[in-house]
């Protein structure tokens, strides 16, 4: 509620820094990138950056809802790796009977989406119905999925059949009017997510639960059902992200999706969503994701700092982006 009132008041005069903060950080990064390298703003580079942001981005949109409702999910990276492995195994197994073609790709996509929803429901069920802390549940499932994919791959790498990979490849690399599919899917997910968060009852319920569970309960919000839905939705989006991920390299291993959960959570927080819940911003998450992948991109395109220090630069920029918002809050 408070957040909404500040927003309306701010809009009349000047947008508050909590809104401007992440945007300013993004604009500064883009300006630095453009100054450093002439190819930075080229279509090819922008496509690369957006397409590779799409995995984390799609997951981070789901994470925004989970965090807004006062939850957390550490299992998404491992879940993505597990779903990718499962998808590859199923598609390879179905290859002799189905042959290379659209049906087998659709089967793979179905497996990913169903596995994602089931994995999300499992997390949600353990958190809401069984009543275990989200941190513990998802820490547990994180380990489970990571080991499962290692076990499925026998410690090595699961690879999609070469012919299938060639057929499936355009899903990552091609698209409509020069805009590749991951970017299109990412954009759709963001638009639907933004509408759900700011215009629909579901988004308001998430924020209500996140700011005060008891009050939400007495206001006739079905707390458990809404929470369960946020985890299921996140699971579904992990499945969608995996559908985009598998055609890129056509393989999954124990190192797939490593630390994606932390990147997704960082993107959500940089974007202005409150880590302890109660307020969420989907468009902010998108900016957070873009900031994170631009830092990597710029560091690769320039020779400014030793590659040993990449992590440090990232850390500094993440903290700066959040400080920018906090300072504004203290003033306004």
């Amino acid at each position: 509620m408070t957040a909404e009132t500040t927003n309306t008041r701010a809009r009349r005069s000047l947008p508050s820094m909590s809104v401007l903060g992440p945007i300013v950080a993004l604009v500064v990064l883009v300006a630095i990138g453009a100054m450093m390298n002439s190819n930075f703003l080229g279509a090819a580079n922008i496509t690369n950056v957006l397409a590779r942001s799409a995995f984390i981005g799609i997951i981070a949109v789901g994470m925004t809802f989970v965090i807004t409702a006062g939850g957390l999910d550490l299992s998404v990276g491992s879940m993505a790796a597990f779903i990718a492995g499962l998808m590859i195994l199923v598609m390879n197994a179905a290859l002799p009977s189905m042959g290379v073609g659209v049906p087998i790709i659709l089967l793979g996509m179905l497996v990913a989406v169903v596995a994602g929803i089931l994995a999300g429901l499992l997390n949600g069920f353990l958190i809401t119905t069984v009543g275990i802390e989200a941190f513990i549940v998802t820490l547990g499932t994180m380990g489970i999925y990571r080991s499962l994919v290692t076990w499925l791959a026998d410690g090595g790498t699961l690879s999609l059949d070469f012919g299938l990979r060639t057929f499936y490849r355009p899903v990552y690399f091609e698209g409509i009017l020069g805009i590749s599919w991951p970017i299109i899917v990412f954009a759709i997910v963001v638009i639907v997510g933004e509408l759900l968060m700011s215009r629909a009852r579901f988004g308001r319920h998430c924020a209500a639960i996140g700011s005060n569970e008891a009050v939400a309960h007495y206001s006739n919000v079905d707390v458990n059902r809404t929470r369960l839905l946020t985890y299921a939705m996140l699971g579904l989006l992990v499945g969608v992200a995996t559908i985009m991920y598998v055609p890129r390299l056509g393989s999954a291993s124990a190192s797939t999706g490593l630390l994606w959960e932390l990147e997704a959570i960082a993107a959500v927080i940089i974007g202005g969503t409150v880590l302890k819940g109660g307020f969420g911003r989907v468009w902010g998450t998108v900016i957070g994701v873009l900031i994170l992948s631009l830092i990597d991109n710029i560091l690769n395109l320039t020779d400014l700092v030793s590659p040993y220090l990449n992590g440090a630069i990232q850390g500094v920029i993440i903290i700066l982006a959040v400080i920018l918002q906090r300072e504004a809050k203290a003033k306004g």
């Binding site: 090819a44 580079n45 690369n48 590779r52 393989s251 190192s255 990597d296 991109n297 690769n300 395109l301």
Partner: peptide, 16 residues
């Protein structure tokens, strides 16, 4: 030593 990381780095090298 990671496929995804090296993909990203190589994409950027090709731009640069």
């Amino acid at each position: 030593w990671n496929r995804d990381d090296s993909f990203n780095v190589m994409q950027d090298f090709l731009q640069k």
